[in-house]
């Protein structure tokens, strides 16, 4: 299997505080990887270095390398705009823009200069279908996305990312602000997407990680304790800390 994304000796500092202490991980193309771990284990920080969203926070220092298809994304010549189109992100709180559903999904393409209406219509439809929300919104595409329920909003946000055809989708606790039914719809959506996209998701929900992910990485105190096939992590982890966390002895 080819590696699509690799991090080597990745350190992140918030001011003096070392949040990530040398992370070596690699992600194969396709499938879902879950990042689990107790609060404060810096798994979200790790996720946010992968598309350089941490650049926005003042006082953050990142050292080490992150290679996306053998290109170091922290190299000075990296174009952030292109990078973030290749590596899309979905957030914890659904954050549709205050526009219509159609405009939300078409937004990335429109700004990239796509003017062909047929092509836009087609991309909006495909993306919403992929995100498994098309049937619910197809009759009111031109109503505000803010009028949708939280779960629908989150799937529109996934469609918005899909519309710019990324290779990797990062999700930062995508269901923790949603009710159980909406959460399971998002999970179904992700399972459908796992064949076409490389998905990396942070989750606090261990059942969710075991249900949907192919591989799981366990984070603790800014380090990766272990990463393996999800089955192995949950049935027969190699490290005692992992077992303690999985079985609910802490965290």
């Amino acid at each position: 299997m080819t590696k699509i994304l690799e991090t080597h000796d990745l350190h992140v500092y918030y001011g003096q505080h070392e949040a990530l202490k040398g992370i070596d991980l690699s992600f194969e193309e396709g499938g879902i990887t879950a990042l689990i771990g107790p609060s404060g284990s810096s798994k979200s920080t790790y996720l946010r270095t992968l598309n350089r969203m941490n650049d926005l926070i003042p006082n953050v220092t990142v050292t080490g390398t992150i290679k996306f298809r053998d290109q170091n994304i922290y190299a000075p010549q990296t174009d952030l705009v292109t990078l973030r189109k290749e590596i899309g992100m979905v957030f914890q709180q659904p954050n549709p823009f205050p526009f219509s559903i159609y405009d939300n999904v078409a937004f990335g393409l429109k700004l990239a200069g796509e003017k062909n209406h047929e092509r836009l219509d087609q991309v909006v439809e495909t993306s919403l279908k992929q995100a498994a929300v098309w049937d619910e919104v197809k009759d009111h595409l031109h109503e505000s996305a803010l009028s949708l329920s939280g779960g629908q909003q989150q799937r529109v946000c996934i469609a918005r990312v899909l519309a710019v055809s990324p290779q990797i989708i990062l999700l930062d606790e995508p269901t923790s602000a949603l009710d159980p039914i909406s959460s399971s719809q998002i999970e179904t959506t992700l399972l459908k997407l796992r064949t076409d996209y490389t998905i990396i998701t942070v989750t606090h929900n261990l059942q969710q990680a075991s249900r949907i992910s192919d591989r799981t990485a366990f984070f603790m105190n800014g380090e990766v304790i272990e990463m393996d096939d999800t089955k192995k992590i949950f049935m027969n982890p190699a490290r005692k800390e992992t077992e303690d966390y999985i079985s609910g002895r802490f965290g």
Binding site: M53, L56, R84, G88, N95, F97, P98, L111
Partner: peptide, 26 residues
């Protein structure tokens, strides 16, 4: 909300594009 700014930047918009096309309309 800051979530709107993050949403724009995560879509590959520059900061100015985010301000112009998302924040000001909102």
């Amino acid at each position: 909300p800051d979530a709107q700014r993050e949403g724009g930047l995560a879509l590959g918009l520059s900061k100015w594009e985010t301000v112009l096309h998302i924040i000001v309309p909102a």
